[in-house]
Amino acid sequence: MQPDDPSLKRMTPPKLNILEKTYLPQILGGLAVTGRHIFGAAIGGKTFTEQYPEEQHIPSANYRGVHRLNKDENGRIKCVACMLCATACPAHCIDIVGATAPDTWDDREKYPENFVIDELRCIYCGMCEEACPVDAIELTGLYDLTGLSREEMIFDKTKLLSVFDLTKSVEPMKTARTSATPGESSSTHELVTKPTDGPSMRAHS
């Protein structure tokens, strides 16, 4: 852009009168603002503080905390071991061992024999949740994850499923897709089976 460009908007700093040049009215204005806050907090009790151990913080709905592995209504793990989450994970903290699903599970070919997330390596970006085609992995609102050793922080399948049991009442599954409703079985079946082929093959090779 040239300096004489007609589209250039020229701004002139506002002329201050003698009182404004002392900055005193502005300082008084600033004092009024902070004073309002001080008195609002001290007398009016208008504070944002949460008294943490006594008052439990409720994070927003899209908070990304500890992972959970969802279960369907039959109590089976929803995961189909498609490896999409492990592929999407930028921190490489998901380790899935896939296996052929039992014969009684007619809606899928595979299920995870083991599903391990290293909660210390995880960066809580939520990309596994976005990648999952069956909404099996979700990030919950649990924020106070603590442990005494590194081993403790490596969550296996049972632990991740127990997180689901812990949080399902407070946080229902974000998309309640069902896999075994008779009427919609074809569409859900498609959803479940289609993406599994590619990644699972890669996992075998």
Partner: peptide, 11 residues
Amino acid sequence: RKIAAWSQDRI
């Protein structure tokens, strides 16, 4: 510390 907190809407 109290005034600092109050002016930032803390306790």
